[in-house]
Nucleic acid binder design. Structure first.
Lengths: 148, 148
DNA sequence: GTGGCTGCAAACATTTTGCATAACT
DNA sequence: AGTTATGCAAAATGTTTGCAGCCAC
């Protein structure tokens, strides 16, 4: 199957009986063309850069819809209070958050799948999603920290 | 060492030069005597039940302080927007969140330690904390869902 | 006594909602 | 044309902050 960022949103929307509108396209473009997780405010700014004029409320509504379509997902990282969003990549990944610089790294690998397999079925629990966030210090911040 | 819920908060505070106050004791009691993760609002309600009269702002401030002392930690679960808090149990555990009933299960086991070992040191990243949340459907909700 | 802490209220930040209008099909 | 979705503004939620007075030390 194609990569998720090449999905035809218009078709996806129509297939489910939703209308194709500017805000929905705008939010999808914003997510699709920027990798990593964006705050809602950041997404709104990006839609503006892309030439759309979208209200904040519509960004929220579009994000919820994209989530329902399985195209996007919310992720809450570390202590950050702001909700962040990213494409719902089918390859499961986890996040490394540096306590020093706040940098967030995506890591892809078998780890998340292993966790899923490990937990799925145990105690009758059917796993749907695995959210793994590892906090710590990246190489650079460790060095800077030592120097202080 | 003693279990975390038997720690003498007064001593802990004094050792770090903080004052021993009612709100701090109240929040500590609330966390200590209720297992699982509580919303801030829930914690405030519990302090009231315990006979304290604590302002919301003070609950927030006390929680931040407990976190700094390493006695409590914030955990953001699944889609829930509200911040939740729990004792900083030294044994690492992860959360199972049911998408149906919202029930949250704590699971203790070697899994989190394995993840830590797996990630620690890779790419020069020094792991400090591992936050793992698995969402899915518990046995009961799976059944109810099928029936609908 | 004095400086840290609290309570209160107001400010903030984020997300949700009601409703008249615009726009997709 | 008929609705669904949008924009706007207001409300709801959750959390933080400024400040005068109180209380632990």
């Amino acid at each position: 199957m194609d990569a998720i960022d090449e999905i035809d949103l218009d078709a996806e929307l129509r297939a489910r009986g939703y209308r194709v509108t500017q805000p929905r396209r705008a939010v999808w473009e914003a997510l699709r063309t920027a990798d990593g997780h964006l705050t809602v405010e950041h997404i709104t700014a990006r839609t503006a850069e892309l030439g759309y004029d979208v209200d904040l409320a519509s960004v929220y509504r579009s994000l919820d819809l994209l989530a329902e379509l399985g195209l996007a997902r919310a992720s809450r990282l570390g202590e950050s209070e702001a909700g962040r969003w990213e494409l719902a990549h089918p390859d499961e990944h986890f996040h490394l958050v540096c306590a020093g610089c706040g940098e967030v790294d995506h890591h892809i690998g078998s780890l998340v799948a292993e966790i899923r397999d490990h937990v799925d079925g145990a105690h009758g629990f059917a796993v749907e999603g695995v959210e793994l966030t590892v906090t710590g210090w990246c190489a650079r911040c460790r060095r800077d920290r030592r120097l202080r």
